[in-house]
Nucleic acid binder design. Structure first.
Lengths: 190, 190
DNA sequence: TGAATTTCTTGAAGTAGTTCAAGTTTTTAA
DNA sequence: TTAAAAACTTGAACTACTTCAAGAAATTCA
């Protein structure tokens, strides 16, 4: 049942059977209904989530009271607020499931013991987070250099299946334009 | 001479004197004049840079041919293109010194041997990159929710000294507005 | 030092998007 | 299976910014 996570880990490091056992003994799977919150703004984030099925998003509520999605996490992605996690400070973000999800939730205390028992995991998380940081830089590049329509087309090309799954207004906010403008782009009225 | 780096590392892990010796034997300091490139678009990035003195920036050239800064790295910060580094793919970015710099450049092969000799460093780089990723998420939040003027005031409040050091047109592009608009914000003509 | 270069400023005209309001379509759940 | 809720569409009016062009100020370095 944890296979997707073990496979993901083994893209970066090699796990001994004994280490897989240790991991299994510490992990558990949660089923979470769509639209449930894994983290609320103001809470201190002390959990990492690995998505097995469904998807989640990180969002904020802007000054006009509307939601803006900063990040999606689909199958085989980690999602959390690392700043709140490391600094033990209140989070600026909400994390919410969008579809019904199966996920592995690892609390800080569990992760810390896992990292002591299997120090190699430090390497796994290092590489994953360095790549995530790289991806965040690319995201900023796209936001800076592309028009709204270009961002939409680029995203659709990179993630054609995901575009079918995600509500348009949510994708619009992720790409930093309004839901109305998304409609016009899709209708070719731009 | 490497003290700023050792201090930075020891914020997150404890180094034995012997480990400091190993580190010292692998590291060297480079002096780089202002406006020199550490990485060019199209090159595969195989080096991490730790800034001791001065500062550098990561930038792109947009479709209109003008430079847009994505990231600054001041004293005690790492800068590199992690995506190019990990995937061995051509970089989308330039990395350039802005002031005369003293920096520690660590090549991939050196870093890999260091990580084998001092596995604890995996933990250091994991925590640093998770926090960087968290900071990148906050940056996207600010870009999404604040007006140009708010972004400028917020940055000035967070980094009052740095605002004095960085050319205004460069900060304007980092905050995602034009140099001309920066002038108007500063003159209170907005 | 002073000429060249880089950086900053200003106003006028333009535009890629937003906001609003109202209606339509699709999905949800009892 | 239907009523309610959520998601999407459309057009008109608006605006936060950009672009352009030209000049002024500051910095660089031969």
């Amino acid at each position: 049942m944890f296979t997707p996570l073990f496979n993901h880990i083994q893209k970066f490091i090699v796990l001994e059977p004994s280490e897989i056992d240790i991991l299994e003994s510490h992990l558990s799977i949660s089923k979470v209904k769509k639209k449930e919150h894994l983290l609320q703004e103001g809470q201190v984030c002390d959990t990492l989530y690995f998505i097995l099925k469904g998807f989640a998003r990180q969002y904020i509520i802007n000054s006009k009271g509307s939601e803006q999605t900063l990040q999606f996490a689909i199958e085989n992605w980690w999602i959390t607020d690392y700043l709140s996690y490391h600094n033990t400070t209140p989070s600026h973000f909400y994390i919410q499931t969008v579809e019904n999800c199966e996920l592995i939730a690892i609390q800080k205390s569990t992760l810390e013991s896992l990292l002591i028992e299997i120090p190699k995991l430090e390497r796994y998380f290092r590489i994953v987070s360095q790549k995530s940081f790289g991806a965040a830089q690319m995201r900023i590049k796209f936001l800076f250099t592309m028009s709204a329509e270009e961002r939409y087309n680029h995203f659709k090309k990179q993630q054609p299946d995901f575009v079918q799954r995600v509500p348009q207004y949510m994708l619009a906010s992720y790409l930093d334009f309004s839901a109305e403008f998304m409609s016009k782009i899709r209708a070719g009225k731009v």
